[in-house]
Write a protein that binds this DNA or RNA. Structure first.
Lengths: 385, 385
DNA sequence: GCGGATTAAGTCGCTCTACTAACAAACGTG
DNA sequence: CACGTTTGTTAGTAGAGCGACTTAATCCGC
């Protein structure tokens, strides 16, 4: 109750005020947080001296040295010798994160026919890549398949694995329980808990579009308020707002594929008409441009882009997003469609919002979901994102 | 790195992982957090025994007793005697929050012509209400007027005031700096810091629609994922997602008034055409129903409602909102307009999203912004929201 | 060439926080 | 009336970060 003006964002984020129900915080949690702070800085800023880490985090050098010694013992960081360059004072010894000391297993379930997986370093570099045909499996069979697939990936890892991340279609709650994934015949399935028990490792599961958003946010350098639109067999979206993933009231945030965008439009698989998927999914776009010459195809793609722009305008305005990333076949998306969507978005939002907005292709290409699944593990186990 | 599956939401919210830059956490911050946890529980659940508080927060009885003794000394809580009812064991002494021991000053700047203010108890009950004509004042003059107005409210308070909350139009950053408020001729004005220095009290400033959302969230019992649409001279929105206010990349989240919703629509003050404000602002609605009989007026309002529903459908889907609250003249909003908007929203979103959605009037009526401004203070000073 | 300034990192003792364990008080129950 | 149960308090303990001091290594100016 001092007269100093406190900063709402910090207190909200750091201490959890602003939520109806929050967990208690013990001193050891504070330590875990500060440890994550160091890793976060080392991850994004590269090798840093202990003194600079202290300045960056506002912790004292004593505390930083103590934490670093623990991280050194765990093998998560290493000393890299003195910092090059000439300056006054004792030369600093750089400390860097050993992104190759541990590995992460990531699985991408977004494709209906194929399970894709990889072993990645902590820096997100793919070390081993595997895939497996689903062969129409679903339900518990698919969980078994997934378990075997993950075991294969684990044995292919060349370093200790800190966890397994899975990007799955459908509605997934924050604890990795798949609430509903019709195409997989999964409903109320505690996938993360199941896999964690079978594999003996921490397992994180999230929606594939959310995962893609996380991947772009952490490895792709995307802004803290952004939306990733995944265009494949269907259309989905993952949203990061003010640096935090959006879950939504029923954990179904980002389900943009079945918003009506065209009055009296094409019939949709969901039983209604004019859903965004009927215009923007990869199959729909391919149908739209089939047999057309280049100019006609561009016109068709531009039309789809305008529909997309109109649908996104309220979302972009409401959330004041800095970026919208498109994730899908570039030959369809990264041309007339993207240009038309950008123009429409600018036209239909107020300048203050539209001017600061970028609409671009996802930087990580086809590996977004895998990279994001790795980020799930990094965030949960190391506090890095 | 244990095999236990951590819960992402908890770690994100409680410890701040998930943000690029976060602040360090000291043991004393942990204590402040746990203290806020107790207040939060007492605030929402009413009088509780120390033992029940321990069970609710997962803290030990020892820690709870220690924290409660501090709160007792500060006068924030009081002992209310033994809990009535017969049960085994030593009877519990109830501890309750003294919502009348301290007061909050709240100011509502959303009306162009009048500054409204109040002194409220911590429970959000208005004790004193004042208002003042703006008389075309703007810029620094308005800041001076505001300072004098706040001083008058402060001297009208009958208990110690823990802080001042202000709901202002325009773009306000998380530190209470008004980035831009054209109607007030404010630009890049550190309003919270200025007022805090002049009044010698903590001052919180936020956008009026965001403030309204907070008010409904905390005092109105609204869901953790919801949008409050304020309909007055203009149209604005405040958004709470997963229990946290949405700020946006440029702190301009919720600026829905100037999204294009009608192709080739009416010209708007912003220079473009077909903005939501041209359909849904109070003046626009009044013009639309002027001179019509009841049935015709309902048809006109329903048309506006359908436009609103179509504009909100992508937002509701993207964020998986549980509630949309309307805040404005009930004779315009709470009838054909709301019904049409609800129907349109249900039609244009997928059932999983639309079914769980409620569209209703704000519960706090004309005092939403004042109540929300009080919540700003409660959240910043006591950690209650 | 040498002391002083400067920067980096380690050591010691302190305070703060919440925990466990044990205990006293007050109530129903058999 | 003894016993179990629940509440709240009293020590004592382990962990966290910090301030003050010390050691170490470099540059700079005379």
């Amino acid at each position: 109750m001092s007269a100093t003006t406190t900063t709402p964002r910090e207190s909200r984020r750091a201490l959890g005020a602003g939520l109806r129900a929050t967990a208690k915080v013990l001193p050891e949690h504070a330590r875990a947080h500060n440890r994550a702070l160091l890793l976060q800085h080392l991850f994004h800023a590269g090798p840093t001296s202990r003194a600079d880490l202290a300045r960056a985090t506002a912790l004292t050098r004593v505390t930083v040295s103590d934490l670093v010694s623990v991280l050194l013992a765990e093998g998560l960081v290493e000393e890299l010798g003195v910092r090059p360059g000439r300056r006054v004072g004792k030369p600093a010894t750089l400390v860097g994160m050993r992104t190759d000391a541990y590995q992460v297993v990531a699985v991408d379930l977004s494709d209906e026919a194929v399970v894709r997986g990889a072993v990645l370093t902590l820096a997100g570099e793919v070390v081993v890549r595997r895939s497996l045909a689903v062969d129409e499996r679903s339900g518990d069979d698919l969980v078994d398949l997934l378990t075997r697939f993950a075991r294969r990936l684990l044995s292919a890892a060349t370093r200790p694995v800190i966890g397994v991340g899975v990007g799955s279609p459908g509605v997934v709650d924050p604890w990795g329980r798949v609430v509903e994934a019709p195409n997989r015949a999964w409903s109320d399935l505690p996938l993360a808990a199941l896999l964690s028990e079978r594999l003996g490792l921490p397992v994180q599961v999230a929606n594939d579009a959310d995962t893609a958003a996380l991947g772009e946010y952490t490895y792709g350098g995307a802004a803290g308020s952004m939306l990733v639109l995944t265009v494949g067999q269907g259309v989905g979206a993952g949203i990061v707002v003010d640096g935090a993933r959006v879950h939504g009231a029923g954990d179904a945030a980002g389900e943009l594929g079945h918003v009506t965008v065209v009055d009296d439009g094409e019939p949709c698989a969901c039983g209604r008409r004019g859903c965004l998927e009927t215009v923007l999914s990869a199959p729909a776009l391919r149908r739209a441009v089939a047999g057309l010459d280049a100019a006609e195809a561009d016109a068709a793609l531009a039309a789809a882009g305008r529909v997309l722009g109109a649908a996104l305008a309220p979302v972009v305005s409401a959330l004041n997003l800095a970026e919208v990333l498109l994730c899908g076949p570039p030959e369809l998306l990264d041309g007339a469609l993207r240009r038309a969507a950008t123009d429409t978005l600018r036209e239909r939002t107020m300048p203050a919002v539209g001017a600061g907005l970028r609409l671009r292709m996802a930087a990580l290409g086809g590996d977004v979901v895998l990279a994001g699944a790795a980020v799930l593990v990094l965030a949960a186990q190391l506090g890095i994102s």
